[in-house]
Amino acid sequence: MYQDPKRIRTKATVYLDQYEADVITALANYLGVPKAEVMRQMLMKEARDALGIDPAALDTSVDAHAG
């Protein structure tokens, strides 16, 4: 059914106080995207930074793997 079953997203709970939730809501409204997307992007950026992964070095195109 799915090309890669590991790409199916699971639910994670994050507890925020009202000030933190307001920041996320304001940013999501400003960007015009769902709050979950804002939080996922922020989480992945912090994870890449903590692990020292350069996102520019990641090439996920099909052409890069085809040869």
Rank of each mutant, 00 (worst) to 15 (best):
H65C: 05
A36Y: 06
A66S: 02
A26T: 13
A56L: 07
A28D: 12
D54H: 03
M39Y: 01
Y2N: 04
G67C: 00
L16C: 04
R9Y: 03
L16N: 01
Q18Y: 02
L31C: 10
A12K: 10
D49P: 02
T60E: 05
L27D: 05
P5A: 12
A21W: 00
A66T: 03
M44K: 10
V33R: 15
S61H: 07
V23D: 01
A66L: 03
Y15N: 05
L27F: 08
A26R: 14
L51Y: 02
I24V: 15
M42W: 13
L58V: 10
A50C: 11
L51M: 09
I53M: 11
M42Q: 09
K45T: 10
I53Q: 10
D49Y: 01
T13P: 06
P5Q: 10
E46M: 13
G52E: 04
K45L: 09
S61T: 15
Y19N: 13
D22H: 06
Y30S: 07
A26M: 09
E46K: 15
Q18S: 13
P5K: 07
R9A: 15
V38N: 07
P55C: 06
H65I: 05
D17G: 07
A36L: 01
T13V: 13
L31Q: 13
R48I: 06
A66Y: 00
P5V: 14
E37T: 15
G32H: 10
Q41K: 14
Q41F: 00
L43M: 11
D63S: 10
V38M: 06
D54I: 04
D17T: 12
V23W: 00
G32F: 11
Y30A: 09
R40Q: 14
E37V: 14
V23S: 00
T60R: 02
K6T: 07
M42L: 12
I8P: 06
I8G: 02
D54Q: 04
A12R: 07
S61G: 12
A56Q: 11
I53Y: 09
V62H: 03
D63L: 08
L43N: 03
T10Y: 02
Y30D: 11
D63I: 05
A57G: 04
R48P: 04
V33Q: 13
E37P: 02
M1F: 05
Y19W: 03
P55H: 02
L27R: 12
Y19P: 08
